[in-house]
Write a protein that binds this DNA or RNA. Structure first.
Lengths: 241, 241
DNA sequence: AGCCAAAACTTGTTTAAACAAATTATCCCG
DNA sequence: CGGGATAATTTGTTTAAACAAGTTTTGGCT
């Protein structure tokens, strides 16, 4: 459960928006009302509301109030969001996850690899390649590289289950930030060899760097998805001049 | 220029990170130092730092400091981010923009269209279809629908120049929030008819709803990009349990 | 009724203070 | 010299207060 008061207010408001206690298009109760409802200060309420705005749930209007702009998404595809392990995503989308490990070796980062991944040259890393199954169909090709210095003791068994579970619950490392880039690329021989591609000649590709609690980049990842099993959602704001 | 103090601090720190005054991997000066540097309160400094973290520029570490995790991205492709008009994006990526208007009509939203776009049934909307050129090559197919009630007086001339410029500077409406969904879809007959597709049989598709300052959704948009001219960047955070 | 000023209510920004929690540096003692 | 408690430093959370700025309501005057 949330350790901070603003987080519990955020979650309570979020739940009430999702179950239409506060309906889309309406205004939230004013800050003063929420202050008495949650018995807290104005800043704490405002912090919760700011998080909801960041998620695209509400939009503040100066002098007027806070409008609910939430729209439930009826998505049937594989939805990305936040930092999640494959197992977590599959579970959230009500699909049966499966994993086949193709390769697990160590290698030393050279100049070319350093430029591509962002790892310092000379660092030793794990090189892990996996096929991901959703409901028994091979749909995603995952490439992961982990700093062996920070993620020691990887085994095929761990890679088949969940590396993130191992990192967080066995090694005790905290995962914090991920920077990602979304592109669409032509299929490769590896894609064709291992995946069920249908007639697609493109893949949705997510590449990213992941940082731990010390602000050290410990993982580079590339995830190749068959197009119809990929969907990503985002909220953006118009920059003020 | 920024109206608020925290915004100018944010921009100043951002610039100093981008020009390596504060290098990646290093710690920012502590909050107390920044308070004296910028002659402001702690909350104001913290607000600026929170924005930098949201952008993936820094990461705070409890009891230690704020680490810079910025990495400059070599942007060779067409990069999306924030809410921008096509002209603005093209200019930022140093490409010559061009537009050809295919269709500009009005229609009434029926049940099927309402479900797809999120517009209320019965509303009258503009239906606008355009081909977008980058450096004289047809690469993007844009479909826009605007509430005629909120965006009156559209003409092919405006559509060829910039609808957003018309909305903001002529109508005086303020654009605030955009919710987007990124998917990859098979090419359609329209894609093939109007665009230079190479051998791709997929398109990167961005669909979205845009809200104005009153929290009213006034635009539905679908933008179909040729894969090699599309790239989107994002920063995500691991959810705390 | 209509108009206008004032008041009330809303969100936005900034400062100040106190305490909590995590890490690092210091100092004292054996 | 080593170890451990203590102090200092750092970020995290919460409260309180004041003022600014935008919108709506009120009320009074013509």
């Amino acid at each position: 459960m949330p350790r901070a008061k603003y987080q519990s207010i955020y979650q309570d408001l979020k739940a009430k928006i999702e179950d239409s206690t506060y309906e889309s298009g309406e205004l939230l109760p004013s800050e003063n009302v929420l202050i008495t409802q949650y018995d807290c200060s104005r800043n704490t309420v405002r912090r919760a509301i700011a998080s909801l705005a960041e998620d695209g749930y509400v939009q503040s209007m100066h002098g007027i109030g806070v409008r609910v702009i939430y729209q439930p998404s009826a998505q049937t595809s594989f939805i990305m969001g936040g930092i999640e392990s494959f197992s977590e995503s599959a579970e959230r989308n009500n699909r049966k996850p499966g994993t086949r490990v193709l390769q697990l070796t160590t290698l030393t980062v050279d100049a070319r690899m350093s430029k591509r991944t962002g790892f310092p040259e000379g660092e030793e890393v794990w090189f892990l390649q996996r096929v991901r199954y959703l409901d028994d169909r091979p749909l995603i090709l995952d490439l992961n590289m982990f700093l062996t210095r920070l993620v020691p003791g990887l085994t095929p068994e761990i890679a088949e289950h969940s590396v993130y579970d191992y990192i967080e619950n066995v090694l005790g490392m905290t995962i914090v930030t991920a920077k990602r880039s979304y592109t669409v690329e032509r299929i490769t021989e590896l894609d064709e060899k291992w995946l069920d591609l249908g007639s697609y000649n493109c893949m949705a590709v997510i590449t990213g760097q992941v940082y731990n609690a010390d602000g050290i980049m410990f993982e580079y990842t590339q995830s190749r998805h068959r197009p119809d099993y990929f969907s990503f959602h985002d909220t953006a704001f118009r920059k003020k001049r």
